[in-house]
Design a protein around this nucleic acid. Structure first.
Lengths: 210, 210
DNA sequence: TTTTTTCTGTTGCAAAAGCAACATTTTTTC
DNA sequence: GAAAAAATGTTGCTTTTGCAACAGAAAAAA
């Protein structure tokens, strides 16, 4: 989370807040929400990890977005065009705040401080999402599996300020995130190791050249 | 452009407005802006068509985003991570408004009505961009060239409320937009015609089944 | 702690996509 | 209106990716 908005402080204020905000808890593999006819839905993940997942007609599974602490999601960000299933699934124990976007925009009828503050920081929150999506597009437009892997590893490395970092999900999920075949990705990963570009120990990766 | 914000009306008001906003005109193939160290840049395309284009080290050209009338762009939406060249290029004669994002957010020092109004509608403007980017990601995550083409055509058809529509750019550019090899795409396009999924006459496409 | 499920790693083969090259048509520029 | 540049359409060949299948390791559930 960049910009001025301090999510931590914000969450603390939640204690004595508007009753229109709902806080819910989810356990591993539970569906947090499905994207269908909830155009007004706006959520903040305040604890845990979750994925926006698409299941298409060919049986392919795609991880459209990966969410971690303080990320925002919800159908207000998405225009449903196909009839593919779009679900936000909890990867681990999650806590989520549910809002109606209108309450943030047009001020909640209760006129509560909580919504008002969120409203003020809304542009930065959404702008942050835009930069994340642009990074994702940059990855997906790379032409080969190798370039996608290297691009993703570079991003994690930069974000971590370290040449060594952990993958935030399993290799199976990574393939679904990069939108490539898992076995082909494993093959490429092996070649990257053999060619000396990376070292790998489970989910722990080290970039050898940068 | 969805939501309440009426860009047309807004542009009209521009006449007697804040002098901090710059309006510039570009001709075909001119570079409108390059994304590098202008973190504060926020632009609105008020006339024409333009593309955000990336040139990578392998000589590949990718159309990252396609902008038409009323779309917003600028480095404020982008986190530069690689040293690839990122340019916004005019496809035809364009008119562009240049802002500083801070002037919109923190109110312009002139405290002008123009910036104030834009500021109020900012969340919808950015949200609109988010839904566009999500659509783009949905396209890019399709596994085959055929699925990408069909997905893109469906989107254009839906947007046009018609099974017949025109491609907004050349086939060469379409390949760069879908991030695939042009000749492979041409082959697939031919197969789509032969299999009776589409009819094609220049840039005019008709979806036969939907 | 044991059982069940999921994930990792690998392979041979098939299919899809990329590359290079060229002729032809269309568009732009002068 | 002629010349130059760019886009379209096509093909043969090569490389990359996907698919299917399976064994062993690791993780989750009972």
């Amino acid at each position: 989370m960049n910009f001025n908005f301090n999510m931590e402080e914000f969450i603390k204020k939640f204690e004595n807040s508007c009753h229109k905000v709902q806080k819910k808890t989810f356990s591993r593999n539970e569906v947090i929400t499905s994207y269908i006819n909830k155009r007004n839905q706006f959520c903040i993940l305040i604890k845990g990890n979750a994925d926006l997942v698409r299941y298409d007609l060919n049986g392919n599974r795609t991880i459209v977005e990966h969410f971690s602490k303080n990320d925002v999601f919800g159908e207000v960000f998405y225009m449903i065009t196909t009839n593919n299933e779009l679900l936000v699934e909890a990867r681990e124990k999650c806590e989520v705040l549910f809002y109606h976007y209108d309450d943030i925009r047009n001020k909640c009828r209760n006129n509560c401080k909580f919504h008002q503050e969120l409203s003020e920081d809304l542009p930065e929150l959404i702008l942050n999402k835009v930069t994340n999506l642009n990074m994702r597009i940059e990855l997906l437009t790379k032409r080969s599996i190798r370039d996608k892997l290297i691009g993703y590893f570079n991003m994690l490395s930069t974000r971590n300020l370290n040449k060594t970092f952990s993958l935030p999900f399993s290799l199976t999920d990574l393939a679904d995130y990069l939108s490539v075949d898992r076995s082909a990705m494993m093959r490429e990963l092996k070649l990257l190791k053999e060619d000396g570009f990376i070292k790998k120990n489970g989910k722990r990766i080290t970039l050898v050249y940068k």
